[in-house]
Design a protein around this nucleic acid. Structure first.
Length: 553
DNA sequence: TAAATTGGCGCC
DNA sequence: AAAGGGCGCCAATTTA
């Protein structure tokens, strides 16, 4: 029993199932079985489960410890296919896709739920408006198979939807495992930084003291958490600031600056990751955020509640492995420039990226007379679309030595400025510019207003598309790396517990740590080849085996 | 009064 | 040193 099977849950815990042929059509009769979990358990040979939505089905399998190696998430795929077709705003639910297929009225997507802290698993109950009949699911899947064939690179598009589906599985795995989190240590850190917590939820002692220092420095009462108040106070003191951003304040010579900057730093910890956060998000020694693969247009993940991708560094002390266990903290080194090397196929840049060592040093040896800092600025400027400063100067040197790499991102920027779409290597596609309007003939977006050449908004658009191809292709790679790593660790006790763009944490018994480190690097190499084909580019990970997250790097 | 926006800063 | 890309979250403020 191999191949693909479609699966849909029923309200009574049962399931509808059907084997699928290569073209996506049903290869046998639809069967109804009483217990979804048992149905999956009884078919260990299925190569890929096809279902509407991973969060709808997979958590109950996970809870029952029924392994699922691969899936195909129809709604995730719909989102990617719509994007590829330049139709990103259209509803992406299976029900909507089914309606489009039947030329019926298309239901809008149900509103996104905001996560409740500590939710057991993300979505046991399907969202209202998401129901689709099984025949509809099968038809939508078959149609999606056809649409993959129409993509610019069908093979890459198939890889992309497979990878996104794998990401959906990993997201549930991460939620189920949870990041080990010591509430007692977190409280210790809070107490060190913020001082005593006052009953009634008022400012902790240290913040109150800093606020007093700020007021003293100005000679009158100033609320440091109110930007307008602070700007006014500086004006009264004869200092003109246009905002209270740290980099602007730090240029100002005034006794209020130091306590003010300190206040803002601590205030942030208090409001974003203070006692309230701890109470809301940490249960039984685990922090369980809800991850959303593809939550951003570039393919980077987001999390829903808890701010898992913005954990302040000072709190990493609270992330501690269980007794006898370790955290393997692995960080992809200079991922984005290496990805640029791979997608641009620039021979020199690929060659420089072919070493596991420091990429910026390798680049500076080749183009910047050994000046690593200049090389780094130039590369980041090329990727982010720098508009001024030294980076711009250095960009010229970069362009001379690595013309294909620079022209790759320049072309992406030009596409954006002209209102065209850009794609990642695997085919994830940028959304249309605001105000772009579809051309009936070719589906090419046009600016609503006559193109004026360069406007601030077209330049901003260019910076976005310039970065999109690199950040997005890096996300492609990271997804494949995760999928591979998930497979490699499935036979171990090790668990993936954290993922953040280019960094992954695996929690494992001490004895497994070496094997996990090797698996991470192997996954990186496999993903590099799977995503970009045979290139000299390497994707080294910096790994640390530690007991606490803060001991890494 | 509730929803949307703004300012600021945390992460990559 | 600052400013380019992507986000989420909080509190305050503005808008509907």
């Amino acid at each position: 029993m191999t191949g693909r099977w479609a699966l849909a849950p029923l309200d009574d815990g049962g399931a509808l199932l059907a084997p699928l042929a290569a073209d996506g059509s049903a290869a046998g009769p639809v069967v109804r079985e009483p217990d979804l979990v048992a149905s999956v358990r009884a078919r260990p040979g299925v190569a890929r489960w096809v279902w509407r939505s991973t969060p709808e089905v997979y958590p109950r399998l996970l809870a029952a410890r029924v392994p699922v190696e691969r899936c195909y998430d129809v709604e995730a795929a719909e989102q990617l296919l719509l994007g590829h077709e330049g139709r990103l705003g259209e509803p992406r639910s299976a029900a909507a896709a089914w309606a489009r297929l039947r030329k019926a009225p298309v239901p809008p997507d149900p509103p996104a739920r905001s996560a409740e802290p500590g939710s057991q698993s993300s979505l046991f109950e399907p969202r209202a408006g998401s129901e689709v009949p099984f025949e509809g699911l099968l038809a939508v899947y078959a149609e999606q198979q056809r649409r993959h064939g129409l993509a610019e690179h069908p093979g890459r598009m198939r890889l992309l939807t497979a990878a996104e589906s794998a990401g959906m599985l990993v997201a549930e795995d991460l939620h189920a495992a949870g990041l080990p989190w010591r509430a007692d240590i977190h409280r210790e850190v809070l107490r060190e930084l913020l001082g005593e917590r006052y009953a009634g939820g008022g400012e902790p002692r240290r913040l109150a003291e800093l606020a007093d220092e700020v007021s003293e420095a100005f000679g009158h009462r100033v609320r440091p958490d109110l930007p307008a108040d602070v700007v006014r106070a500086f004006a009264r003191a004869g200092v003109r600031v246009t905002s209270t951003r740290r980099w602007e304040l730090e240029k100002v010579d005034h006794p209020a600056v130091e306590p003010l900057v300190q206040y803002k730093k601590l205030y942030r910890i208090w409001t974003a990751n203070g006692w309230t956060w701890l109470q809301d998000w940490v249960r039984e020694g685990r922090f369980r955020p809800e991850y959303q693969p593809g939550g951003t247009v570039t393919g980077r993940w987001t999390t829903n509640g808890g701010g898992a991708l913005q954990i302040p560094r000072v709190l990493r002390r609270a992330v501690v492995a269980d007794e006898g266990w370790r955290l393997v903290v692995a960080d992809a080194a200079q991922m984005e420039p290496r990805v640029l090397a791979a997608i641009s196929r620039d021979p020199g840049f690929m060659e420089a990226s072919g070493h596991p060592g420091d990429l910026y040093a390798a680049l500076s040896d080749r183009a910047f007379a050994g000046d690593r800092a200049q090389a780094k600025l130039a590369v980041l400027g090329a990727i982010y679309g720098q508009t001024s400063g030294d980076g711009l100067k250095n960009l010229a040197a970069l362009r001379r030595r690595f013309p294909l790499a620079v022209s790759y991102v320049d072309e992406a920027a030009r596409a954006g400025e002209e209102g065209r779409l850009v794609r990642t290597w695997l085919g994830r596609t940028s959304p249309r510019a605001l105000g772009a309007v579809e051309d009936d003939e070719a589906g090419i977006p046009q600016e609503e207003e006559a193109p004026q050449g360069s406007t601030p908004s077209s330049r901003a658009r260019g910076r976005f598309t310039r970065n999109f191809v690199v950040q997005g292709s890096a996300a492609d790679w990271a997804l494949l790396m995760l999928a591979t790593l998930r497979g490699a660790t499935s036979g171990m006790r090790a668990e993936l517990v954290f993922f953040q763009h280019d960094e992954v944490i695996v929690h494992c018994p001490r004895e497994e740590a070496d094997a996990v480190v090797a698996a991470v690097q192997a996954a990186a190499d496999t993903a590099g080849t799977a995503a970009f084909g045979q290139t000299p580019v390497r994707f080294p990970f910096t790994t640390a085996v530690v007991e606490r997250y803060s001991d890494a790097k």
